[in-house]
Amino acid sequence: MARQSDTRTRIQAVARELFAAQGVRDTSLRQISDRLGITKPALYYHFASREDLVRSIIQPMIDDTDRFVTAREQAPDRGPGGPRLLLEDYFELMWRHREVIVMIMRDVSTLTELDLTERMFGWRRRLTSLLLGPEVSVAQRVRATVALGGMSDCSVEYAHLPLEEVKGPAVEAAAAALGLAAPS
């Protein structure tokens, strides 16, 4: 069973790399199987379809983000740091899943095909409420979109740099966009 799991993990790693570089639509299952040195039927043994393979790569990000937002909603007052701590933790979440974000950004139709668009907008609305409260003006929603979207973009754009070099400026910019006071 360990071998089957190893092969599945290797398929996901190669697919993630090719999807991020070429896009989901422009990457064939044949390219993935050729890169791995396995037959296409062997790939189908592990994943019933391209959608199944894509979903297996994206699902951990979905699960982690769902858990993150839900946990924050259940314990919104996390002591000192409040919204800034939420931004820091959110940035780290996006950083962990930056390869998947690149994959999605390269082929945005993946969101539609996997019914992720509304889910992602839902996360943003829920995070905005956690950051700014339940009654949010249009201007505040726009700032939250810039803050949260900008941090996601930074996790991709600067992925070649160390986390410590990117996180601070990204969080500070997000906090400024939200009008949060600088830490004392």
Results as ranks from 00 to 15, higher is better:
A2T: 01
G149M: 10
R50C: 08
V108S: 14
V69S: 10
T65E: 06
A13L: 12
P76K: 01
G150I: 05
D77R: 02
E73V: 01
P183F: 00
G81Q: 01
R25Q: 14
L163E: 13
T9N: 06
Q4N: 10
W123Y: 14
V14L: 09
M1D: 06
E165K: 04
M103H: 12
M120V: 12
P169E: 10
T7Q: 08
D107A: 13
R8Y: 03
D6R: 02
G122R: 13
A13M: 10
S155L: 11
R98T: 08
L116Q: 11
A173E: 09
L53A: 14
A144C: 09
Q59D: 15
S33C: 10
R67H: 12
P183S: 05
T112G: 08
Q22W: 04
S109C: 07
Q31E: 15
A174I: 08
P76C: 02
V102Y: 08
R126G: 08
L161R: 14
Q59V: 09
G82R: 00
F47K: 14
S152I: 01
I38E: 11
D63Q: 14
G23E: 12
I57T: 08
D107L: 04
A15P: 03
R67W: 05
T39K: 04
R3Q: 06
V14W: 03
D6T: 04
R143H: 08
A42M: 07
F68Q: 07
A182T: 00
L111Y: 04
Q59M: 14
L18C: 15
P162G: 03
S56N: 09
M105Y: 11
E17Q: 15
A15F: 03
L53M: 12
H160I: 02
T70N: 12
L130D: 01
R106N: 07
A144E: 03
R55K: 15
V14C: 13
E113Q: 14
T9K: 09
A174P: 03
C154G: 04
V142Q: 11
L127V: 04
P162M: 07
Q74M: 09
V136Q: 04
W95E: 12
S129K: 07
M1V: 05
A71L: 03
A13Q: 15
H46C: 13
M120Y: 13
A71G: 04
G168M: 01
P183D: 00
A174N: 12
L178R: 00
E172Q: 03
M151D: 12
L111F: 10
V100R: 12
R55W: 15
D89P: 01
E17S: 15
M61K: 11
A182I: 00
A174E: 11
E118H: 09
A181H: 00
F19A: 13
G37E: 11
R78F: 00
K40A: 09
R84N: 10
E51C: 13
R98P: 02
E172P: 00
V166G: 08
P183K: 01
M151E: 08
G168T: 05
E92R: 15
R35F: 08
